[in-house]
Design a binder for these strands. Structure first.
Lengths: 209, 209
DNA sequence: AATCTATATATAAAAATTTATATATGTAAC
DNA sequence: GTTACATATATAAATTTTTATATATAGATT
């Protein structure tokens, strides 16, 4: 079994769902397209790790509702208890920041601005999810299964907020300082020279502001 | 060109290096094994995006030092100025946290403890890198090329610190509250019942502590 | 003496992942 | 009325990525 399959088991251990629903839940956990998820479910099913029930629907396509078997659950428990492998983060934004000095100041500013927007929107969606869990607490008693997911939502919100703080820090660093000294459009060459003077002189920046 | 190739160009735009060195620099930017990087360098070279110089060495294998061409640099600039795609994070730790309620309390605690250790060690390495950049400022004038990398180091340190804060939050949540009420080894069933009672009642926790 | 680590590149094979295509239907927007 | 979107599953083809193997040498460790 690979990590995708363990991730599927983790989601199903919280709530039985269709392949279609699984795609959405996995987005934040172990992103995968449906073309990868459906074959994985077939494998898990053949291995006896999951069961499914065919649900007839009118108006929309029929679906299979999957749930973990005892075997699947115990495999998952065992895997969850061994050490984790290093995370692999693939984020184009990071590569673009690495090369940010090659951009014109307006492009650099818009790169940061887009990331702030991205983060804020994501935070809103995550907080909605958290709200739903908290709300359901009053209707249903056994919310135990939401524990891990709730912790992860809290984690992601914290990290996104911290990234937004960092974005403001970078933006202030790049644009405010340049604009203070040169309140006119400046060339890349000027920007480079200025940054090389100021980048690691926070004392200077403190004097300026 | 794919993102791996743009990432390679980004690293080379900062500093000419061998494929072997590239692997290490890409680890935090766009992780890839050498078996992926060497063919990518061949492609970039054939496309005229990078040049290389053969360096004869004694005692160790000869190497190729790659650098970006003008063409490579302008391609990179253009790519860096278009919107970024969504990040893809694959982190087994997150999957294990999602399923944390299935673990025995000691296993859950050790999962969190390992992540804190992981984060602290990573922070130490990153701070060393930052220190080197800051130190070199006094010897060399043109540190402009380190700008993006320095920003990313700062970002990662901030995020790791925030994750460590979150880890303590989770650990306190899970273990302290349980130990307070039941200072003896407890079963999974007890733990589940307790968590379902307390998880979303911070008021209760405040009364307890 | 043998093993491990670091330096250095290359490629084949296997596995994971993405992109594209197919099919089917209700509802909402334009 | 036509386009877009949400629901639902399936598979082929292309691409990306990992694992494994190959070769070569110096220095440190066991």
């Amino acid at each position: 079994m690979n990590t995708l399959q363990y991730s599927i088991l983790s989601v199903l251990a919280r709530k039985a769902c269709s392949g279609y629903e699984l795609v959405k839940h996995l987005e934040v956990l172990w992103p995968a397209k449906h073309s990868q998820i459906y074959p994985a479910l077939t494998k898990l099913s053949k291995g006896g790790y999951v069961d499914y029930e065919l649900v007839q629907q009118s108006g929309r396509p029929n679906k299979k509702i999957f749930e973990t078997t005892e075997k699947g659950l115990s495999e998952l428990k065992e895997w969850a208890s061994i050490p984790f492998n290093d995370p692999a983060i693939k984020d184009e934004f990071l590569v673009k920041i690495y090369a940010i000095r090659l951009l014109e100041p307006e492009q650099a500013e818009s790169l940061i601005k887009d990331r702030i927007t991205f983060g804020k929107e994501k935070i809103n969606r995550l907080m909605e999810n958290m709200g739903e869990i908290e709300k359901d607490l009053h209707h249903d008693i056994d919310q135990t299964k939401e524990f891990g997911r709730y912790m992860l939502l809290e984690r992601k919100v914290r990290l996104l907020k911290e990234e937004i703080n960092w974005c403001h820090w970078v933006r202030d660093f790049v644009t405010k300082s340049i604009k203070f000294l040169l309140p006119v459009p400046i060339s890349l060459g000027y920007m480079e020279a200025l940054i090389s003077e100021m980048l690691f002189l926070p004392q200077l920046l403190q004097v300026i502001f």
